[in-house]
Design a binder for these strands. Structure first.
Length: 274
DNA sequence: CGCGCTCCCTGGCCGC
DNA sequence: TGCGGCCAGGGAGCGC
């Protein structure tokens, strides 16, 4: 499901309901998602206050008042919804239900189960296997033309693969990779190391801009992505190439093409993107 | 080491 | 209406 803008939107939506709220009860309806839940997940959560919610890459990090935090990843199809009270009946694929002392309930639903939920000591987050090898956050000062150019200058892979690689920069998934390359006039097939520093500078700016614009629009709703309150995002109406195979390019009116890279669909305008 | 292929899993949609 | 095939926002692991 979600790329960086969607996870950021979810995080922002969760904070008003959950920050300062105390976990009363945790219901696990299965033992695992992509990886097994920690044995002590329930004990570690129950009775804890949510001190804050952060995001790193596409991971949500719930800080507890103990030394722990809960790490959550939504995979492709994961949703987290805040409900005013505990639902009478669980929906299919509701895997984790967290009840809070004020009566609200957080429900984690993930049909494809590519998501994960685990625990980590706050002091060990940066060292955690999930985080230790990650590249810079694209919306932080750690990401700029210099950083991206140095990450790509020796790469033989196509530029689209490279910017979707979390070692290079985190949070850029299939949609925003396609859109930022279109804005930059760069072919997704072009070899990373062959791109000029000037072009990499443009791409850097376009990655940042497209992510920021998507966050302002509340993310992109394709099939079933919704905010923590159930509302939809609307950045999908701003897509220039993603999902538009065969349609006219908005710039040159030639047809947008779809190809496969790393088993995933890439959309681009062969005329505008060289 | 860098890179790409395959797989994890479910569900929706399309064509026959 | 049913079934097979293809598609989907992510990421780890393995083999070359």
């Amino acid at each position: 499901m979600p790329e960086l803008p969607e996870v950021e939107t979810i995080k922002r939506g969760l904070i008003p309901s959950l920050k300062g709220n105390i976990i009363k009860n945790v219901i696990l309806r299965r033992k695992n998602l992509r990886i097994p839940f920690p044995e002590n997940l329930q004990q570690a959560l129950e009775g804890q206050k949510i001190e804050g919610i952060k995001r790193r890459s596409k991971y949500l990090i719930f800080e507890l008042d103990s030394d722990d935090c809960m790490i959550m990843h939504l995979g492709m199809s994961g949703k987290v919804l805040v409900k005013e009270k505990k639902p009478e009946e669980f929906e299919k694929h509701d895997h984790i239900i967290i009840e809070f002392s004020d009566g609200k309930t957080l429900v984690f639903n993930d049909a494809r189960r590519f998501g994960l939920v685990t625990l980590c000591k706050k002091s060990e987050l940066e060292k955690h296997k999930l985080f230790s090898a990650l590249g810079p956050e694209p919306l932080s000062n750690n990401f700029n033309e210099e950083v991206l150019y140095n990450a790509l200058r020796n790469k033989s892979s196509p530029i689209k693969n490279a910017i979707m690689d979390a070692h290079v920069v985190v949070g850029v998934g299939n949609i925003y990779a396609c859109e930022s390359l279109f804005r930059s006039g760069l072919s997704p097939l072009k070899k990373s190391s062959s791109i000029s520093k000037k072009k990499i500078g443009e791409l850097t700016a376009n990655i940042i801009n497209v992510l920021n614009e998507a966050i302002e629009s509340g993310g992109s709703t394709l099939k079933d992505y919704v905010h923590a309150n159930g509302e939809m995002g609307y950045f999908q109406h701003s897509f220039q190439v993603y999902g538009r195979e065969g349609e006219d390019c908005g710039t040159c009116l030639k047809a947008i093409k779809r190809v496969k890279q790393l088993g995933r669909s890439t959309f681009y305008c062969p005329n505008c993107q060289k």
